[in-house]
C-alpha cells in the first residue's frame, strides 16, 4: 500500500502541498487532476524525494515503511518509478547502460544477457518502438512520443510495483496514445502494480480505467470520485460547479 498522510511541502517559502493525503491500495489505479501549476508534478517529485522541496509535516509510507527521507535511488529500488512529463535526455549514456546498471544495483544476481536482450526486444515490439533505441543515448533526439515509449521500455525491464505517470499523454498522437495505454494496461494486468496517473484531460482515462479520480486544489485533494468525475471536469472545467475559486468542493 502507498499512503501519503497530511503532507505539507514548500519550495522557496511557497506552500505547494497543504495537508495532502492519499491512499492507494495494491493494484489500484488512481488519477489526480487539477489546474496548471496546482502542484501535481511537484507531488510526483516529492514522492521521489527531490531535494528542492522542503517537507514541513506529514509522511509518505510505501509497503509499511516511511520513504520520506530515503535517497531517491533507494525509493526507486523499493519499486516506485516516475515517468515524468518531459523525460530528461542524457548525451553519452545509452538506455542499455542505464538498465544494466539499474538491474545490477537492484539484484546481486548476474544479469542473464540473453533474457535481458529478449525482454527489451519484446518490449520494443509491444511499444512499436524501433529497437535501435536500446543502444541509443537516453532520450537524445527522440520525439515526445518516443520518449514516453523509451520510459515504458524501462518499466518493462525494471518492473516497478508502483508506477507514477506524470502527464504520460502529453506529446502523444492518437495512435501512440493507444499503444502506450495498451502497454500500461497489459503491464498492470501482469504485474498487479499500483498506478498513479497525473493528467489534465480525460482522454487517457478512456483507455486506462482508474478506480478513483481525485481533484487537487490548494495543496490538497478536494474531491474524489470514479471516472465519471473526469468526464464532468472535461465538460465543465475545474472552475465550474465542482470546485469554487477557493478550491472548496461543493
Amino acid at each position: 500500500m502507498f499512503k501519503v498522510s497530511n503532507l505539507t511541502a514548500y519550495i522557496e517559502n511557497k506552500k505547494i502541498l497543504d495537508g495532502f493525503s492519499l491512499e492507494i491500495n495494491d493494484g489500484e489505479i488512481h488519477t489526480i487532476m487539477g489546474k496548471n501549476g496546482i502542484g501535481k508534478s511537484t507531488l510526483c517529485k516529492i514522492i521521489l524525494n527531490d531535494p528542492h522541496y522542503e517537507i514541513k509535516a506529514g509522511d509518505i509510507i510505501y509497503n509499511n515503511k516511511s520513504i520520506l527521507k530515503k535517497p531517491t535511488y533507494e525509493i526507486a529500488k523499493e519499486g516506485i518509478m516516475l515517468i515524468s512529463q518531459n523525460p530528461t535526455s542524457i548525451e553519452g549514456v545509452t538506455n542499455m547502460e542505464v538498465l544494466r546498471t539499474a538491474l545490477r544495483e537492484k539484484s546481486s544476481e548476474n544479469i542473464n544477457i540473453f533474457k535481458f536482450n529478449k525482454e527489451m526486444e519484446d518490449a520494443c515490439a509491444r511499444l512499436e518502438l524501433d529497437p535501435k533505441f536500446i543502444h541509443k543515448e537516453v532520450n537524445v533526439g527522440a520525439s515526445g512520443g518516443e520518449r514516453k515509449k523509451i520510459e515504458l521500455l524501462h518499466v518493462a525491464i525494471l518492473k516497478p510495483s508502483f508506477l507514477i505517470l506524470d502527464e504520460i499523454d502529453s506529446g502523444l498522437d492518437v495512435d501512440a496514445l493507444k499503444v502506450v495505454a495498451n502497454f500500461i494496461n497489459e503491464y498492470h494486468k501482469e504485474s498487479k502494480c499500483s498506478i498513479l496517473i497525473i493528467t489534465h484531460h480525460k482522454q487517457i482515462l478512456d483507455y486506462i480505467k482508474p478506480n478513483y479520480v481525485h481533484i487537487l486544489s490548494e495543496g490538497k485533494i478536494v474531491k474524489t470520485g470514479d471516472h465519471h468525475l473526469a468526464e464532468e471536469i472535461e465538460t465543465t472545467g475545474f472552475r465550474s460547479n465542482i470546485i469554487d475559486e477557493n478550491g472548496k468542493s461543493e
Partner: peptide, 28 residues
C-alpha cells in the same frame, strides 16, 4: 542535477550516476 536525479529515479546510486555522467562527458 536533472540528469543525476533522472538516473537515481531508475534506482542508480549517486556514485554510479556520477560515474556514468563522468564517462559520457569525457569520452563523448
Amino acid at each position: 542535477w536533472e540528469e543525476l536525479f533522472y538516473l537515481q529515479t531508475k534506482g542508480i546510486s549517486n556514485d554510479d550516476a556520477i560515474e556514468m555522467l563522468k564517462k559520457s562527458f569525457l569520452f563523448n
